[in-house]
Amino acid sequence: MEYRNLGRSGLKVSALSYGSWITFGTQVDVKAAAEMMKIAYDAGVNFFDNAEAYAGGESEIIMGKALKKLGWKRSDLVLSTKIFWGGKGPNDTGLSRKHILEGTRAALDRLQLDYVDLVFCHRPDYETPIEETVRAMSYLVDKGYALYWGTSEWSAREITKAYEVAERLHLVPPTMEQPEYNLLDRSRFEVEYKALFEEYGLGTTTWSPLASGVLTGKYGKGIEEGRLTLPGYEWLRKRYETEDGRQRIQAVERLRPIAEELGISLAQLSLAWVTKNPHVSTVITGASRPDQVEQNMKALDAAELLRPEIMNRIDEAMGTKPEQPRNWR
């Protein structure tokens, strides 16, 4: 396993990590969670990702029980949660000081932890002043509830504002962002965030490296199984039943000859491709079966096969590489 600094921090995270979104609490119980987390851990994974919103908190409960069962040394782990959607009450959602503090404490109780290494603002909150949010997140770090704080799916402008507020008020700034990044969704990461990497050394814990399974090639002959067919994810299926969605699926099929030539799966190629970006601190993988975890962990070996000429062929096959602004330095 390769370990990378989380941005300009001194924290080392495994290049591949394991997240519980969608699976824990809906498809995976404590026994299965522990089994898959152990496979990832044995492969060198040290970062495990979660959120208060996942399965209404049940995901954190399952991960907490799995961690107790596995008995790993706490200092060997990097654990996270994300705060925004905590319930149905008027103060259970968003990034007010009240919800940030109460939501984080509740998440720690569910995870059976004294602290998380990373806590994220799961989305921007347009009803709460950014100064209030930055003060509250900085407070979490000062009090030891979390060691680092960051954002998830924030725009570059919003992240920049958080840095400016933190600098002006002498508070702890965000260390990392958790954005979607894969061969089909590249513009925000590669264009919009470019200045953040240069100016602030922003770390990233990227999610959806397989675009909800689309980059595994499983939907080439139609949407009949997988994440797009799960109850509650009809919105995601509809996205790929549009003309644009069908074109995205067809683009994946153009990768298949390259993967076959290299002797790897489409999933391994797609995961490996994300790890090649130097601004990616860690790639969050997901799985509902042990064999999926085992196959995902082989992506780092596959990354060694992605020489510059192969990366160029991938760009040509996909046609998704965004153009940089002409006035960009």
Results as ranks from 00 to 15, higher is better:
294 E>K: 13
238 K>N: 14
244 D>A: 15
211 A>L: 11
282 T>M: 11
267 A>H: 02
258 I>R: 04
293 V>G: 03
229 T>K: 11
233 Y>A: 08
289 R>K: 15
265 S>K: 10
242 T>Q: 03
294 E>R: 13
226 G>M: 10
291 D>T: 14
271 L>W: 01
206 T>F: 06
246 R>M: 11
295 Q>R: 14
293 V>P: 04
261 E>T: 05
221 K>W: 00
216 T>D: 05
246 R>Y: 01
281 S>E: 05
281 S>N: 11
255 L>E: 00
217 G>R: 02
267 A>G: 13
223 I>A: 12
215 L>I: 03
295 Q>W: 05
285 T>L: 14
297 M>L: 14
264 I>Y: 00
208 S>K: 11
209 P>D: 10
276 K>G: 09
262 L>H: 09
214 V>G: 00
264 I>H: 00
256 R>Y: 01
207 W>C: 02
280 V>N: 02
247 Q>K: 15
205 T>V: 15
220 G>T: 09
239 R>I: 07
224 E>T: 15
218 K>H: 02
223 I>V: 13
215 L>C: 03
272 A>W: 01
211 A>M: 11
260 E>S: 04
269 L>E: 02
242 T>A: 05
216 T>L: 03
298 K>L: 15
212 S>A: 13
294 E>L: 06
238 K>S: 14
204 T>M: 09
260 E>T: 01
239 R>M: 14
255 L>G: 00
243 E>G: 06
294 E>F: 02
276 K>C: 14
276 K>N: 09
283 V>P: 00
258 I>V: 12
219 Y>V: 09
212 S>N: 12
244 D>V: 15
220 G>S: 14
